[in-house]
Design a protein around this nucleic acid. Structure first.
Lengths: 188, 188
DNA sequence: GCCAAGGTACACAGATCTGTGAGATCCCGC
DNA sequence: GCGGGATCTCACAGATCTGTGTACCTTGGC
């Protein structure tokens, strides 16, 4: 999936990622992104086609980075329950640099059109995590059909609250809550 | 707190609330709001001063509506645990009309400047709910210092996931999770 | 009768937005 | 040496953005 990018395109994507995440999508213009990348607007449009597609590329890149870390953390564990809770461990480290909350939730807030190319990336990201929870829980013998969604809710809530509610403890206590929910759940 | 508004101002606020929530703050211009309210832009600026202040007014109004419902639901219960969980009951009904998620989280995503007048409203709203959880849990004899934040995380997560992750079940399973967490918690 | 408040009408300033057109330049691989 | 991809230059279109200036109208209360 990692398409090889030209050097200019890579710089554009790096700058766009930083600015979109820090200030929001509508608040950052393509002029700013091009200037900050040391590239002309022409190049930006030649590489990405439109701002909407650049936004989608930004979300895809962030999704890739994040999935890689989660996947690595899950693979590193052998105990089934620890595997299911691995995303929460990643979350605690991830949030250190993520003082603006969840990039996908923030993007969702700004992309009202359901056919925006970024929306598919958001849908994908959320579905992927939910299915990861479901798979690992099933492997651990936990078949409560609601439990995977509960872990997703805790995960989302921790990211969001950590920033919007200014509660840096949110990821830590969410991890504890996830552990408690998994601990209380009925085994098969 | 409810300042009396002129008829024009009320219409502006109603329209702005709907459009800001549905499409995002930056995506909606003051021209659109004025036109849709059957009012001139001059009136809008005479009443609210600036778009930023209109945004803050929008958030305040939504916060007031929501707090009224939560307060009523809490007051209607006598059992301490049911009081603590009342916000989740409200949430399930509230989300039926809230297909764009949490207005405050969405606003946070767009308002990057910490000194934006809307940011104070967001901080207030989150703090208020967190303190409500803490107060009611303490009244129920539940003194785990993390539990209130866990309920807040579940609440935020349910609102966000319900929309951004397209999981309409989120509020329901979050309520169940909250009940489970409160049930497992150590009593004093 | 008068005045203030709420509102209308409407042009305008000045900035910023996304996106394009047409050609020149640089550099790498073949 | 030559083709082609990547990039630059730079003007420009056309829309939209927030916010203001000026003048006028209407209505209710004193």
């Amino acid at each position: 999936m990692t398409t090889t990018l030209t050097p200019g395109a890579r710089r554009i994507l790096e700058v766009a990622s930083e600015l979109f995440y820090a200030h929001g999508i509508h608040a950052v213009g393509v002029d700013t992104i091009a200037a900050e990348s040391g590239v002309t607007k022409r190049t930006l449009y030649d590489r990405f086609g439109s701002k909407d597609e650049l936004v989608a590329a930004y979300l895809r890149a962030r999704d890739e980075r994040w999935r890689a870390r989660v996947t690595a953390a899950v693979e590193a564990e052998t105990d089934p329950v620890r595997r299911a809770l691995a995303p929460f461990v990643v979350l605690e480290a991830w949030m250190v640099d993520a003082d603006r909350g969840c990039a996908f939730v923030n993007a969702f807030a700004e992309l009202d059109r359901a056919d925006h190319p970024g929306r598919a990336v958001i849908d994908d990201e959320k579905r992927w995590l939910r299915e990861l929870f479901a798979t690992e829980l099933a492997r651990a013998g936990l078949t409560d059909p609601d439990l995977a969604l509960q872990l997703l809710v805790l995960h989302e809530g921790a990211m969001v609250a950590s920033a919007a509610a200014a509660t840096p403890d949110a990821p830590r206590v969410a991890t504890a809550a996830a552990r408690a929910l998994v601990g209380c759940a009925p085994r098969r």
